[in-house]
Amino acid sequence: MSIDSASVLAALAIVAVMVFSLTAAAERSRRHASRERQLRRATIELGELSSALDELDDEATPAVMLVYALRLSDAFTNPAFAAFVRDQLAQAPGAFDDKFDEAKPAEEDSELADALQATLRTRPDLVVAFVRAFSAAISAFAERWPECTPYVEPLRRQILAHPAAEARRVVTLSNRQVAGAAPGLAVAA
């Protein structure tokens, strides 16, 4: 049996297809493993969020802190909010770079900031739990919906310095998404 050039070309083509297929399969496997790690980290962060919310379930926790903690948890675990953020980022990549236009803090900002300050003096563990809940919710959101990271990263840097303002920022944005999807369902921020 002799080997002709057509047979060699056919064999090379088969080898090339096999190499391409194996490379593509390896890449898919790598992407799936990476995504699985992200989702595992999101699950851990959701556990941290749940733990922090349990700590806030205390008679000494001011109502405004509880309300914001729950609103933040709802926003950052809501697939519709993630889709809204993703769509906004697709339309305008810098959509979330700027702060809200209000020059002075809103009344609830002050109420939340005052509650955080007062609680810090009497029960610092509750303020830590509030910030942990906020941080865990953001981290879970970023791991679950990595395409929303351009929104999340600036927020992560701000929550320790300005937890009340950043909490209101997220709740306001979430309310805009809810109002756009179903007018009348947004909760006052």
Rank of each mutant, 00 (worst) to 15 (best):
S5Q: 15
S7A: 14
V8Q: 08
A10W: 06
A13N: 13
I14D: 08
V17D: 12
V17F: 13
V17L: 10
V17S: 11
M18Y: 13
F20R: 13
F20Y: 12
L22A: 12
A24E: 15
E27F: 10
R30S: 12
R31D: 01
S34M: 12
L39S: 07
T43P: 08
I44R: 14
I44F: 10
L46E: 01
S51R: 10
A75K: 03
T77K: 08
N78P: 04
N78H: 13
A80N: 08
A82H: 01
D87H: 04
L89E: 03
E102D: 12
A103E: 11
S110G: 11
E111R: 15
L112Y: 09
A113C: 08
D114P: 01
D114T: 02
Q117M: 12
R123C: 00
R123G: 00
P124S: 05
V127N: 10
F130M: 02
F134H: 04
F134Q: 01
I138E: 01
A140Q: 02
R144G: 01
W145I: 00
P146M: 04
C148S: 05
Y151Q: 03
I159H: 15
I159D: 06
E166Y: 10
R168K: 10
N175E: 15
V178Y: 04
A182Y: 07
G184Q: 02
A186V: 09
V187K: 08
A188F: 11
